[in-house]
Computed example of a mutant assay.
Amino acid sequence: MKSGSAVRLFAVTAALLSTSMIHMIFAGDALSELKGPYLGQTPPGTTAKTFAPGIVSTQAWGDAGSFTPDMNRFYVSRWRSHEGNWETEIVAYERVGEGWHKVALPKGTRRAFHAPDGKTLHYGAKYKIRTADGWSEMKSLGPAFEKIQIMGLAASANGTLVLDERGTSKGDGILRYSRLVDGKYEDPKPFGKEINTGKWNAHPYIAPDESYIMWDGERESGFGSNDLYISFRRKDGSWSEAINLGDKVNTEAEEGGPHITPDGKYLIFNRMVPRADGGDERQSDLFWIDAGFLEALRPKE
């Protein structure tokens, strides 16, 4: 993945949206043929396949998306270059009974990263917490976070944060972490060289139990452009050397934005694919695969 492309595309993608902070209206689009979880899609096996083609992954737009923690809503961020103009839009699908409805979202909706329990919403260096009356006022993670141009952020069940930063044109973004101690977030600290190696590291995901982190990065040893990587937590608390997820997900194209569905079953990620209209630029589609293969990558201790 070229660094500039990573910043421009994935900075608007992998985040979840705050549904409780906005007024949502059914768009009159009852997707009656979509029944059951995962937007009614047949789950993938050990081969990655496009997620919800024609619904989430579309020909006209670059697409990315995530489920809310309860898995009853799926949010899609879209972008495209149209007649020389850069356009974005956000759509959502909500589960009603066994079916799904497309939901209209007002322009300017702010994106948020949900904590696994759905009780904290992260907006870059700021956050809100759920209260008895709704959501709190916006709070700051602290001055150290405010100095970082955060693109992607994820939280564990214990509140540990992993975050990236918008790097320079040289693609020197690194990953950091911050623990929640006595109700306060520590200043973010860079991961070691086992993770922050190569030209580009961004869009981290941390397992709810903190047993591993995943991210996308650009390294000479990769399959080409950006690849997906994983590092496992050792018994002593240190992190293993980065492991390429391999040819089950990585290709000569650029992959990015890895995360696991809230039920822990599937890996969802983005891949840059040829545009349907034959244009020179590529666009992002969403892919998914059974996440069972990840455990086989864990180094034996």
Rank of each mutant, 00 (worst) to 15 (best):
E146L: 09
I148F: 00
V76R: 00
L105M: 11
V96N: 10
S3V: 11
I195G: 07
T168E: 14
E241H: 07
L34Y: 13
T47V: 13
D182P: 12
D236N: 15
R95E: 01
A207F: 08
S3H: 02
S57W: 00
R80F: 01
F26A: 05
G279H: 09
E33S: 15
D70E: 14
I289K: 01
E137S: 14
E165Y: 02
A155W: 04
V103Q: 10
E210D: 05
P204A: 12
R275A: 07
P208W: 12
G257E: 12
T46V: 06
S66T: 13
T109A: 14
L228V: 10
G118D: 05
R179T: 05
R95G: 02
T261C: 01
N226D: 14
S5K: 09
L175F: 01
S238I: 02
F113M: 15
Y205A: 09
P37K: 12
L297E: 06
P274Q: 03
G152M: 05
R234W: 00
L267I: 02
E218S: 05
G118P: 04
N201V: 06
S77V: 04
S5C: 07
Y177G: 04
D280S: 13
I243Q: 00
S284I: 11
A253T: 12
A253W: 06
A14R: 12
T68Q: 01
K300T: 09
Y205D: 08
K126G: 10
E146G: 11
L34R: 15
W61M: 10
A112L: 01
S20C: 12
N250I: 14
Y127A: 05
M24G: 01
D247K: 08
E146N: 10
H101S: 06
S156R: 00
E87V: 01
P53A: 13
A64G: 15
Y185M: 06
A291Q: 01
R233N: 09
S140D: 13
Y127S: 07
A155V: 13
L16W: 11
K2P: 15
F10D: 15
A144D: 15
D70Y: 11
Q41I: 03
F74Q: 01
S231D: 06
R80C: 04
G65W: 01
L153F: 03
T251Q: 03
R73V: 08
I129N: 07
W239A: 09
E252R: 13
F145L: 08
S178N: 10
Y38T: 13
G28Y: 00
D285H: 15
S136K: 09
D227F: 04
L163D: 07
K107W: 03
Q149L: 09
Q41N: 10
H203T: 14
S3I: 07
N201C: 10
K49T: 13
F269N: 12
F223G: 07
A15H: 12
Q59N: 15
K189H: 03
I90K: 13
T197M: 12
K193I: 07
M138P: 04
G45R: 04
A6I: 06
T261M: 01
N226A: 15
L267F: 02
W288L: 03
G152Q: 14
Y127Q: 11
G134E: 10
S240H: 00
E194V: 14
P299V: 03
M272V: 09
E87I: 02
W215T: 15
D277T: 00
L180S: 06
I195S: 05
A92Y: 05
R8G: 06
D227K: 03
A242S: 11
F113N: 13
L31M: 15
L294N: 09
